[in-house]
Design a protein around this nucleic acid. Sequence first.
DNA 1: GCAAAAGTGTTTATGTTACACCCATGT
DNA 2: ACATGGGTGTAACATAAACACTTTTGC
Lengths: 228, 228
Amino acid sequence: MPFTYEYPRPALTVDCVVFGFDGDGLMVLLIRRGLEPFMGSWALPGGFVDMEENLDEAARRELLEETHLKEVFLEQLFTFGNPGRDPRGRVVSVAYYALVRPDQNPATGDSDAAEAAWHPVNHLPPLAFDHADILRMGLERLRGKIRYQPIGFELLPKHFTLTQLQELYEAILGRGIDKRNFRKKLLAYDFLVPTDEFTTGAHRPARLHRFDRRRYDSLVRKGFHFEL
Amino acid sequence: MPFTYEYPRPALTVDCVVFGFDGDGLMVLLIRRGLEPFMGSWALPGGFVDMEENLDEAARRELLEETHLKEVFLEQLFTFGNPGRDPRGRVVSVAYYALVRPDQNPATGDSDAAEAAWHPVNHLPPLAFDHADILRMGLERLRGKIRYQPIGFELLPKHFTLTQLQELYEAILGRGIDKRNFRKKLLAYDFLVPTDEFTTGAHRPARLHRFDRRRYDSLVRKGFHFEL
DNA sequence: GCAAAAGTGTTTATGTTACACCCATGT
DNA sequence: ACATGGGTGTAACATAAACACTTTTGC
């Protein structure tokens, strides 16, 4: 059953806002464009959607091709389609945001992406296209969603200390949080389970915890709603 | 600066989940398709995006063409792009949801949309394409967002009684709400202002209120956050 | 005067905030 | 032994939940 009349079609791309956390501030992964337009500018990783793949698959493929990242948390963000956002013509872009753990290391070496590097979200270079808008929206979404969805853990190693988790929240939300209240509240929901591992180093060792998705899911099914 | 290589392009459409409230239950506006594929089936209003218009404009234009609705609340929902969602070939659809007031009456009489009619969300006919998925997502979004964004008012007349507002919340959230607590809480935020109008009818007249967006915006700027 | 919806406060329970000291380790 | 980050409880305060009767109108 083909089309009886062919409407003109915009080009379709995906772009990814890739967040990381280095223990200090929130970072975004940018690539330096190796092709026109905006050659040499920093941009979000992304590219054209193939005809046989769905949109999530396209985003994952581009992430793999341009940054060698695999198995990251990925969620659709928004679709940007203003005429004029790309000087080559009408291009509609489905934007995603991704969260990567510190131990997943991006590498570089693709044709369209000459270089990939982490940039602190609070100190960004000028970006190609409307990527600054996309990035801003990704940040808003992350800030909003981290307060009621268990996505913060996707930015930490599988096993983490409560202090690391608190610092992550503080970095994303941009405000300090009381240590005792933070721990009390999070441990009350029993989806953070203590492991028997500890950090080593110059000071008192900290217990490592992990996020237990099974427990979280079962709480959610019971109508439970976590916040901050 | 044209494209140096032309990637194959999916077709691009918009689809709208249009919600209404009849004082009793939540309704969705569906059109009966006048063309293949799925001719005769119920579907969401929508259609192809033109090359010169942005995505919001496309959604508004389709809404006007197919249902004669104008000046409705409209917000992007999600983009659906699985290959195979349209039997004619690859079609990516940017979904929107819209909220219309009871006094805005949709009409019908378009070539692709032979008929438009409200359906209760709790009793829907089978839908064309993946429109049932889109609709489900629209409902989820509405249920989530009405609790912390002032969008419920978009489903009521400009002037409304507190009981109407409460019934709207009850219909969308699917649970009863205590009358005194509901009124106390909403009136404490002073963005609901009483008018000097009253309902007339068989019983004690109820005072009509209106939503004051200026006051709401100024509260938001002060860092205020409304919930339920 | 009766049926039907509008309107109105107080008490209790629950959750949130503020706050300071001791502990374990490496150097 | 000291510097550094890890870990812990309680009291004040604020918000949410439960709950029943009086008022106003049309018929």
